[in-house]
Computed example of a mutant assay.
Amino acid sequence: MRIRRLAVTLAAVTTAGLVTAGLGSAAQAAAPAPADTASGVTASGVTVHDVHYGEKPIGGHVAGAPLQAKATSANTLSVRSSGKQGVVSPTPKVYLVFWGSQWASDPAGVAPDLQAMFKGLYGSADTWGTILTQYCEGVATGTTNCGTKGTHVTHPASSPLGGVWFDNASAAPTNATAAQIAAEAGHAAAHFGNTTQAPNLNAQYVVVSATGTHPDGFPNSGFCAWHDKTTSSYGKLAYTNLPYIPDLGAGACTTFTDGRMLSGIESTETHEYAETVTDFWPSIGWNGKNGEIGDECQNLDAYVPLSTGTFDLQGLWSNAANACATKG
């Protein structure tokens, strides 16, 4: 499991709870800001430590570098909890949240591209997503092969894109803290009407930041993106912090060196999507010595044709194949 620890001031966390004003409807404005369950306050009451999972490092991709020369037992993923909820996302739903009025500028065309990718990530045209169906919840801790047991991830028969929200009533923070990003996931849950735990057992909120912004210190924090969970009055929420990766230039966060500006954000978001599906409330889901399903395969990207276009999908670890794969 790749884990990053960072510190934010208590004042920043308090501010996160106050930025709801002006962010859309009265329902969002009144929504309580969620707090990261991995956070804590030191004895002095000054510092909050957030733990984030599934972090894809900017330097993690090396073009042309080999994957594991030989697959070993260290690569095998096993489930970390026998729980029947929050281990995986059996019927995934993705909610894209384009945060802030800064989305009036989208020079790389990220917003339409991500929507097109998720609109095509289903059915017979999507052989990449079928890798996920071998993983399940409701089986004994330490299980590495679900077989017919447990509740498996289901391959979507229709688009997993549950909704799109341009939250552009006001500007997003230029340097959003982790707590503010988590709060935006809570606002999104309210916006989409997912106000009980039931729909949030499969909903993942992808908070996409606009060009020129620096969510959680991006890019100086060294990550392409990360996913995590947070708590709210709507239950636990799974969410992703997805920065505007094209700001790093072509070739960042992907193994491809062909100059295509959108490859890095597609590769990164499919990394985070798959890790959220298989480790929904980190880290009780599927993990191995080298991390989650995407962490194991950061040196494998493939252009995969879907019904809505061809996209850079990152390789995923398959226990069934005992290898990284880009199709099931």
Rank of each mutant, 00 (worst) to 15 (best):
G83A: 15
V88K: 00
P57F: 03
V79H: 00
A69H: 06
K93D: 04
T76Q: 06
K56A: 03
S78A: 15
S78N: 08
L96T: 00
Q102L: 04
S78Q: 14
A65V: 07
G59Y: 10
W99G: 02
Q85G: 04
A65Q: 12
I58L: 07
W99Y: 15
Q68L: 15
G83W: 02
R80V: 14
G100I: 14
V88F: 05
P66I: 13
Q85I: 09
V87L: 03
S78G: 10
V79G: 03
T91Y: 05
G59H: 05
V87G: 00
V79Y: 00
A65W: 02
S78I: 09
Q85L: 13
Q85A: 13
W99R: 08
P90C: 14
H61R: 06
G100Q: 07
S105P: 06
A69Y: 05
S101H: 05
Y95S: 01
V79D: 01
V94W: 02
K70N: 12
Q85F: 08
K93W: 00
N75F: 12
G86A: 01
V97Q: 00
W103A: 00
S82W: 05
Q102I: 04
Y53E: 02
V87C: 05
W103G: 00
P57G: 12
Y95C: 00
G100P: 01
S105M: 04
K56E: 10
G86D: 04
Q102C: 04
Q68W: 11
K56S: 10
W99Q: 11
S73Q: 11
P66G: 06
V88N: 01
R80T: 09
E55F: 13
S73P: 07
L77Q: 13
S73E: 14
L67H: 02
G59L: 15
I58V: 15
G60H: 07
A69N: 09
